[in-house]
Nucleic acid binder design. Structure first.
Lengths: 138, 138
DNA sequence: GTTAGTGCAAAGCCTTTGCATTTGA
DNA sequence: TCAAATGCAAAGGCTTTGCACTAAC
């Protein structure tokens, strides 16, 4: 899995810059559901001259390479998460404190696939989000 | 159900203006998954002096009153749909042509509720979106 | 007659882009 | 060397807000 990261730049004819290395390393070692702003400020601790544009551009590269996934949780800014270590999963989002939990349910996945197939859709991806109150906030 | 619409303004101490009447009427009679821009241009056919701000403000009122639901399908602009005539449903979105289909699956709903409950969440709402190719585009 | 609502334009956010400068291969 | 990448600032797209004017109650 780490090879995939090491090779995704040279393998696509892209240059391995210090900035990209910093962004990727910090991204992979951060908590999930990171916003671009959070990532930028974390990378700045390691590489102070990093600019927003580079963070956004690198995130886009990661998404295009399938190494990251972009999500919209409705607060207007995108969140990114590594697609490396874990398979597909869904989200439980606390509407009060913003905490995000994850879960997986193969049965739901199956039913989704069936529902789509029945309507003639060829599934490419899907997302399921449940909004509510987390144990701490209810 | 129409009473709910007629009363939602006066019942909250809000004024029933021509603009709001026009926006609500057009909104309720339009296809689902309407963007603010689409709604604005449709309302303008009925009330040419309507401004964007009024459309946005009225949409917000409808959402707060529970008469409309706001959704993000990932293209950066919100879509709105009436919450009046139909119960909860999920979406199939064509990544090529943008066509949006709807479906319902009570079994999926149940499994979602169970998954949330098991993790101590009190569900308030949820959304399930499947992205792929529609029958015409595949 | 008051107070809330409207329309316009300006401002806010998040994200992308243009461009001169820097840097990896 | 030299095209690609960076950083800054400016621009873009959607949405909200400030404010003087208008209209509902």
């Amino acid at each position: 899995m780490s090879e995939r990261v090491d090779r995704f730049l040279p393998g696509r004819g892209l240059k391995t810059t210090r900035q990209r290395q910093a962004v990727v390393r910090v991204f992979l070692h951060s908590h999930r559901h990171l916003s671009a702003e959070e990532l930028h400020s974390r990378v700045r601790a390691v590489y102070p001259r990093i600019g927003y544009a580079t963070v956004y551009r690198t995130l886009r590269l990661l998404v295009e390479a399938g190494l990251a996934e972009e999500r919209q949780f409705g607060d207007g800014r995108a969140r990114f998460e590594s697609a490396l270590h874990k398979g597909h999963h869904d989200h439980l989002i606390c509407v009060k404190c913003g905490r995000i939990a994850e879960f997986e349910n193969p049965r739901i996945e199956e039913l989704q696939a069936t529902a789509a197939r029945r309507r003639g859709f060829k599934v490419r991806s899907h997302k399921l989000e449940i909004y509510g109150l987390c144990p701490q906030c209810r």
